[in-house]
Simulated scan of single mutants.
Amino acid sequence: MAVEMAIWRVEGDKAAPLTLSPMDSERRLEDMVAEDPAALTGTDLLIIGRQVKTDFGGVVDLLGLDDEGRVHVLELKRDKTPREVVAQTLDYGSWIKALDLGRLDQIYQIYHGDEADLKAAFASRFAPIPDEDVNSDQRFTIIASELDPASARIVEFLAESYGVPINAVFFRHYRDDDRDYLARTWLVDPQQVEAESRRASRTKRRPWNGTDFYIALGRAGMMYRWELASKYGLLSAGGRSRLRNLKPGTRVFAYMPGSGYVGIGRVTGQMIPARVAEVEIDGERQPLLDQPHPDEEWAERAESTDPDVIEMVVPVEWLAPESIREPDQAFREKGLFASQLTVCKLRDEHTIKAVESAFALASQDADL
């Protein structure tokens, strides 16, 4: 149940309540949500469409993607009755669920221009993900000043009892002389909605264990990424977005394209630019860029300040007793997961178990 909110201006020992006033237009609120969805909804979203026409004659106010590729429907109440907006929001779900990446890209181009590229924009804002993860799930948010009790009960019932990922957020507009303020209240705790939705999810996507990532150490002819990993314990990739999900404590299954899996490691530090990284040489810390470079183009990218080009590195400790293998000794067998992405979540249990076994890494070692 939503909690009513009020705001007071404190002047000395007195508290003066601010005046609750209607916003001059819901279009203004929509503009603010579209401009900065994270600030107003609490979720960082890439807005891909606005006033999106469905195949059934409806119009979705705002469509966005979160960092897991889930599609978010943000629907403003406007002049619709409370029950209409709840029913309409759910109806949009039947249409949105069937949208593939190509259709979402078309929606994105209508909103951002014909030359816009959804996958590139997503990778720049978050990190690259497999195509099959895009729109693997949906989230629905009703934006309103209020809902009638019956509609509120419907939303609560669907979210809490059946795990439907729907919620309502209420914005109150206050005026204080020449300044405007917004106060936000959720109908249902967003964390509760997310937990219930994940529990009830019927998605076909394999669950992720929350720890393991796949990383490709370059492509054929890009041995320098393998050399950085094997010699210095550094995973390297171009662009700020590619390694951003590799946090300390996560595991990485290193794959050499064209060869196979060459090692399993544990991330030990934060992502940093290669130009400020240091490595240990004969017991002393020295700048990475002072060491011989196997590739001059890599060195140029390391010196770059362009966020789409700059080489970033993440330190890793190799867990297997044999450390990291030479590419010609890589482990490969039919049915193992492989991807053209630089980094992605490793969900395939068969691959995890097979690579652990190949590198003599027991299950208990995986949790160290």
Rank of each mutant, 00 (worst) to 15 (best):
L76W: 01
D178G: 09
V169S: 01
A159K: 04
V169P: 01
D91I: 10
P130Q: 03
L182A: 08
A152I: 04
A152S: 14
P165Q: 05
F157I: 08
Y174C: 06
K80D: 14
A168E: 02
E194Q: 14
Y108A: 05
S145Y: 13
L101A: 12
F122L: 06
R103D: 05
L118D: 00
Q191P: 09
S151T: 07
K119S: 11
L101Y: 11
K119P: 03
D79W: 12
K119Y: 07
L76P: 00
W95G: 15
D176T: 10
A150S: 13
R125I: 04
H173W: 12
V169K: 06
L99T: 02
Q138W: 11
D180I: 14
F140N: 06
F126W: 02
R83T: 13
D79V: 11
K80I: 07
L99N: 02
A120I: 12
R153V: 12
G93E: 09
S161L: 12
P165G: 07
L182M: 09
R83A: 15
L90W: 01
R139P: 09
L99P: 03
L158P: 04
R153S: 14
Y111A: 08
L158Y: 05
D189K: 13
F122T: 00
A168Q: 00
I107V: 14
L158Q: 08
K97S: 13
R179P: 01
E160W: 08
R172H: 12
D105I: 07
A159E: 02
Y181T: 09
I143E: 00
D100C: 04
H173F: 10
I96G: 03
P130L: 05
A123V: 07
Y92C: 00
D137C: 06
T89I: 04
N135A: 08
D91F: 10
T185K: 13
S145I: 09
G102Q: 06
R139Y: 10
D133M: 11
L104I: 04
E75M: 07
D131C: 08
A127D: 02
R172V: 04
L182P: 01
E160Y: 06
L187R: 01
I166L: 11
I107Q: 02
R153W: 13
L76D: 00
P128I: 07
D177G: 11
H112P: 06
L182C: 08
D137P: 03
A168K: 00
Q88L: 10
F171L: 11
V155D: 02
I96Q: 02
L99Q: 05
L158W: 03
D178L: 10
A152L: 05
G93L: 11
D177P: 07
A195I: 12
L76C: 02
A183N: 11
Y108E: 07
D91H: 12
P82I: 04
A144E: 00
L90Q: 05
I96S: 01
D133H: 15
I110C: 09
Q109D: 04
A123N: 04
